[in-house]
């Protein structure tokens, strides 16, 4: 009992440190890549090739003055960024980073907890994450923040359905809700191959869910300054910011585990394959941002409710029919 708790605590601490470091470097990855797409240099002054830039940013954000705008609701203003960051980090309890390894003669699964409703837990945590956005925008008592948070919440709620339908098709094919089992079901063929429609829906849903271009309406700066984050600064802003980048890494890991075969791949060890596939998703997200203009708000909502959700249901229906026909 005590040993199990201790193992879980150590694993969680390692996971937390790993995720936060990766997310800090995601900011640098994105800024350097965008700079490359736009024929600029990007941040390259702090450390060799700008590699210490994330630390400089972290120090700056932590030491900035922590203020609260007049007329803001104090309680809600302080807890909203915490909700955003905690729910974003919570999902790493069930996302596997690789197969079971043997360390010092003991089997060590590279996942904090392999629960049998794993993927639902991820979707549940992301649906709680909306509260960070909606409460943060409301509490700041500013019209730009309120508009931004209304837009964000509507967008996240709509695209959560698209994401859920795509995941449901995969869950049907794999016959399990456990993320480890879903990866094991792709030993021979990736679900990206057998479920191509669900894969495209998942990619669109993931980009919209993380609020990134071309779906970055929540913080379209020409209209809303910075959306729900407008009135936040210093460490509170950093919590929202970290939550967003954690979200990108989470979606990358989910894409790798649900559709791209997880840790299955030739030659390289499992965790390396997971990292490569996650980075591929992150690159795809940055590439989209550098390439596409922002869509309009009504187009965004119409795309989800009038097109993607219908396709998702059809795909689910076809998947279920094929499985029933095969007698699965």
């Amino acid at each position: 009992m005590v040993e199990a708790l201790l193992v879980a605590a150590v694993k969680s601490a390692v996971m937390l440190a790993l995720v936060l470091t990766v997310c800090a470097y995601m900011t640098l990855f994105e800024r350097r890549l965008i700079a490359g797409f736009q024929l600029r240099y990007g941040p390259n002054r702090v450390g060799p090739a700008g590699l210490l830039q994330p630390f400089a940013d972290a120090v700056k954000l932590i030491f900035k003055e922590s203020f609260r705008p007049a007329g803001a609701d104090p309680l809600v203003y302080w807890i909203a960024p915490g909700i955003a960051m905690i729910t974003a980090l919570f999902v790493y309890a069930v996302i596997p980073l690789g197969p079971t390894l043997t360390v010092l003669g003991r089997p060590v699964p590279l996942v904090v907890a392999d629960v049998n409703v794993g993927i639902l837990l991820v979707l549940g945590a992301s649906s709680i994450g909306v509260y960070g956005i909606i409460l943060g925008g409301w509490a700041a008592n500013s019209k730009y923040a309120l508009m931004g948070s209304l837009r964000s919440s509507a967008q996240v709620l709509s695209y959560e359905l698209v994401l859920g339908l795509a995941v449901a098709s995969v869950v049907l094919s794999a016959g399990t809700l456990s993320l480890v089992e879903i990866v094991n079901a792709q030993q021979r063929v990736w679900f990206a191959v057998t479920q191509p429609v669900a894969f495209v829906l998942f990619l669109l849903g993931a980009i919209a869910e993380t609020g990134r271009a071309p779906f970055d309406l929540p913080e379209s700066e020409q209209e809303l300054i910075a959306g729900y984050q407008t009135e936040y600064g210093g460490f509170n802003f950093a919590m929202f910011y970290v939550g967003e980048y954690v979200g990108i890494v989470t979606m990358g890991l989910l894409a790798a585990n649900l559709f791209l075969g997880g840790w299955h791949g030739p030659l390289l060890p499992g965790p390396v394959w997971v990292a490569v596939k996650t980075l591929a998703f992150a690159f795809f997200a940055v590439w989209l941002r550098a390439t596409l203009p922002r869509v309009r708000q009504d187009q965004l909502m119409a795309l989800s409710w009038k097109v993607l959700i219908e396709i998702g249901f059809l795909n689910l229906l076809v998947t279920a029919a094929i499985l029933a026909w095969r007698g699965g």
Partner: peptide, 11 residues
């Protein structure tokens, strides 16, 4: 309940 219903209340 926590993820969808209360969000609608807040809306």
């Amino acid at each position: 309940y926590a993820g969808a219903i209360v969000v609608l209340f807040l809306f």
